[in-house]
Computed example of a mutant assay.
Amino acid sequence: MTRLRVLAALLASAVYAVVPASARASTAYAPDGVLFYPSLAGLLPALGGPHFCSATVVHSAGHDLVITAAHCVFGAGPGTEFVPGFRDGRAPYGVWSVASIHVDPGWQSGQNPTRDVAVLTIAPLNGRQVEDVVGARPLGLPVIGAATTVRGYPMTAGVPSACTSRLTLTAGFPTVACPAGGMTDGVSGGAFVQSGRVVGVIGGLQQGGCTATVNYSSPFGAWTSRLLNRAQAHAAGDLALPGFLANACP
């Protein structure tokens, strides 16, 4: 995802509606959604601008966690919103506030691309946890050579894009090729899914890739489980540093 597109997302000012429960969209993509900075310190209206990244509800003991790329987030969490099942400018399952951000020390100290993952704690909405409303995907470890579906929401599309191919490695980073393209700015943080499990998120090398046909992820391992466990324990969140400005893509 390019620096200019991220900045454009932060400065745009469109407003999206919330669809009533009776008009909810299909639940096929319910755990997957998008991230917004809705107010930009009060300068923009609610849900201001196009979304800037994708994210997925990940199964947790508290049913309140979302996983995305670390380069997608900054700050402590409040002021960022998650919209699961986002479709055609609508939020069929509501708009959920991020309460805290958890990133790996390797990302926090030097934006190590092998640690480009963030776990977000989501505040309850109307007394319910996000996983109880839209479901979740369990965390897993990637299997090289296995069929992998990568999902994300391009900024310019009202629906998610997805493609499936065999997982490979590029310089140690899990890689999914999408020959038909479609994985453009806005898909960062979207899930790599194998057998229903999140085994990666679009990020890492080149913060996910500089073209619409190749997607990278940081290599999940024991460190991602530790990160999830820290968030599950409701440990103090991190003050995440902006990462998108370090992107090497033009």
Rank of each mutant, 00 (worst) to 15 (best):
R197L: 10
A8T: 12
E131R: 01
V176L: 01
A147S: 15
R128W: 00
T164S: 04
S218W: 03
V117C: 06
F82M: 02
G203T: 14
V134G: 01
A61N: 07
P50K: 12
A41R: 14
P160H: 08
C249Q: 09
Y93D: 04
V98M: 08
A91K: 08
G196L: 07
L169K: 08
A191S: 03
L228N: 02
T27P: 09
P154K: 01
S100G: 12
H234D: 15
G182S: 00
I202S: 04
V119P: 03
G85E: 12
P45V: 01
A55M: 04
P250H: 08
Y153N: 01
L141E: 03
V176G: 05
V159F: 13
F86D: 00
A171N: 13
L47R: 04
L227R: 05
A177S: 06
V117Y: 03
P78R: 07
D116S: 07
A233T: 05
V73Y: 03
V199D: 04
D32G: 06
G221Y: 07
V98L: 11
A69H: 02
A70D: 05
L4Q: 09
A46F: 12
G110K: 07
A180T: 11
Y153F: 07
M183S: 01
I67A: 06
V15R: 14
P142Q: 01
Y216F: 15
C163F: 09
A212Q: 10
I122S: 02
Y93Q: 03
R87M: 13
F220H: 02
V58R: 05
Q129P: 11
P160E: 11
A17E: 06
S22F: 02
V57G: 04
F244T: 10
D238A: 06
P92W: 11
G152V: 06
